[in-house]
Design a protein around this nucleic acid. Sequence first.
DNA 1: GCCACTTGTGGCACCCAGTGCCAAATGTGC
DNA 2: GCACATTTGGCACTGGGTGCCACAAGTGGC
Lengths: 205, 205
Amino acid sequence: MNDHPPGLRERTRRAVQQDITEAAQRLFVEHGYERTTMDDVAEAAGLSRRSLFRYFPTKEDLIVGKFEVLAETMVERLRERPLDEPAWTSLRRVFDLLVPYVDAPGKYEVAEPMQRIVFATPALLASYLEKLHRMAAAAETVLRERAETRGAPSDPTDPALPAVTGAAFSCLLAAQHAWLAGGAQETFAVCLDRAMAAVAPAGKA
Amino acid sequence: MNDHPPGLRERTRRAVQQDITEAAQRLFVEHGYERTTMDDVAEAAGLSRRSLFRYFPTKEDLIVGKFEVLAETMVERLRERPLDEPAWTSLRRVFDLLVPYVDAPGKYEVAEPMQRIVFATPALLASYLEKLHRMAAAAETVLRERAETRGAPSDPTDPALPAVTGAAFSCLLAAQHAWLAGGAQETFAVCLDRAMAAVAPAGKA
DNA sequence: GCCACTTGTGGCACCCAGTGCCAAATGTGC
DNA sequence: GCACATTTGGCACTGGGTGCCACAAGTGGC
């Protein structure tokens, strides 16, 4: 709705946001997530606690906040997939969006400790799982629309579609976990392929 | 380790716990989860805030706490399944443990609003998803052990097994959601069957 | 350049979940 | 009954998060 070339306002905001995440991640790696307070982050980022909360509404968002944007991009990509493609394949292709986030050259050193922190911190893991769940729900909606334009019944009370999309996201999570456990010796994309091949639903839903 | 016949101590504790959950659920249904404070619950249950936190370490546990026990029972049941049974089938059978919690006669009126609250409250949903994830991890461990006693390689960095167990739990979640959406016109067990049939992995992991 | 106007900032007080500590009450074993 | 362990509740404190408000800073019109 708003595609002005990014004004100065917006750019400084993004810059500050970037500064904050970097400062926060540094602190989290150094002292641990739970032992780092929002005051610490604010001080390290050079702004007031009150303003910090205007950039990141919750502490969790300092880490898992970026998935908000990702979810939207994912939905867009999903719409662009060929209409006759099986849902499972579409989802696999859409997950490629995550790849640059984890094993792009150079990104690993940053992404890896963050992911470890997420899996090690109950509150963060919970928040992350919830975000994934919302992404899955959004994906499900798109898939349902597509099924209908293709001319399918798609009973909203039938658990088949949510089950399949949910399973796909479980594979995503399993792949992420395996990638971490294996010390990133394998590509994330390879882990993802393995995980999704292991489940590979029969029904095209 | 401790199977004394439940002493008086333990019994009163359970009774109080029961009272608290009932009071809490009543308040949650009446005023909503987030607008109900722990002080409110304490007062309604007739004990001090401080003691309330000794029975339920977090507010979320007032609702999703019971899953702790459930997870243990699930693991036990999983061990009792025949060794040559495919993981997917074992998991389906184990999920039957949940059935009495949701559509036992009479339980519906209590279980249904609680589930709605969980799905409607981000914090609760997150907490619930995390518990499911832990259950899945526990199940995965058991399945891995079983695979090994059966004489299988089971590389701990292979995402196949976690993917399959994760997918199964996704089906569980989808079934629950569908059951709620359908106003419980279908049995929960039926929803579960439908969801798991829709995914039905090819590899036996 | 000044003037209105909108937007971002920081400080303050506040709410609520959760914890450590301690003294008083209450139950348990002998 | 007494000595002991456990439970309880009060209190003060931490930390995440919000509403409010006064003030600074960018923005646009002239």
